[in-house]
Amino acid sequence: MEYVRRVEQSVSLLALLAIWAVGTMIVATDLSLPTPPQVATAFVEAATGSYFWGEVVRSTFRVYLSYVIAAVVAIPLGLLIGRSEIAEDLLFPSLEVLRPIPPIAWFPALTIILFNQENIVRFIIFLAAFFPILLNTIEGVQGIEAEYSQAASSLGASSSQSLRHVVLPGALPSIYTGLVNAMGLAWVSLVAAELLSSTGLGYYLWNAFVSNAYPDVIVAILVIGVLGYVSSALVRWLGARQLPWLQSETV
């Protein structure tokens, strides 16, 4: 069963590659679009130099740093808002006004406030990751049936024990859903922010575009895709490890 699924997943990726190869090498040859062999050559060239890897590390570090900060702020805040009506009334309306603003739209305003380009990029990624984690935490807390909290207090749990043993573990599946979404959005906004700055993979992509090095554009796109995929997979794996009771439920 597991084996069959692996084959199916490989077929999906190979089909994508095949469509690309047929499209650029047979159907639309006169548009001089980057073909798979050209991109492979460009990748090997980039991968043998240190500049490219430096940008990969820089971008990955930016995502992970901002992402962890977002989680550390959003999860406790979400627990608070989910548990306390007062906190919800005081905080939630403002947060809901800020939420629909695309993180990248903050870029001009942030140049006035933060000056430092590194911090601007970090902050934009933070914003992108923050809201999905926050909302899913709140939803997770409010979704726990009151019966579990009642049961805990009838068994003698104090409210802080109830938070630790009932609210947090009960909300954890939803929190992980938020964390997985947030990881994807963090990479999306990283690229957007870096297009406007002068370092990182996003800038590498933009620079390749303006220098007409189209195979390098595709290299950057694919590397960002793979990094995003691996990062999300990592979060999923952590989630599965922490939620054995959910995992066995689906088996």
Binding site: Y148, A151, A152, G170, L172, W245
Partner: peptide, 9 residues
């Protein structure tokens, strides 16, 4: 009637 065992424990 419905059990209220904590599913995560």
């Amino acid at each position: 009637q419905e059990n209220r065992l904590f599913p995560w424990k």
